[in-house]
Amino acid sequence: MQIFGIAAIALITTFCVLVLREVKSELAAAVALAGGIIVVLSVIDVFTDIFSTIAAIAKRAGLAASVVTLLFKVIAVGYVTEFSASVMDDVGLSSLSDKVTLAGKLIIVGVSLPVVVKLFEFIAGMLS
């Protein structure tokens, strides 16, 4: 099963980071980041299967394609923001990670504004 490989990689990365912290090297954070990237990349093909099935289901349900692509874009932005914010939290730069999280939230709201506007128009149309 995949999880054993991922757990092994994560544990090895943890010990490498501990050794590097012992020697007071700044590269401990780099090793942690590399380990995180490897774990994510080894799971990425499961992502692709999930998202293609979701897209197929959404298409069959008759959802507008733009809404589904918007959903994927929001998920992608959210994930990248969380990934980088957690790396900065690791190193202790909580101020920077808060700023990145704020930027991610603003981007998500900016991207999803058209749908919200469409929703309000739809409601207004129904009420009038």
């Binding site: 007071k24 590269l27 590399a34 380990g35 490897i38």
Partner: peptide, 19 residues
Amino acid sequence: MDINIIFKIAAVGLITAII
């Protein structure tokens, strides 16, 4: 994507610290 990248980076970190 496998484990030797992590070992490479750890090795560089270790060697630079010792030097």
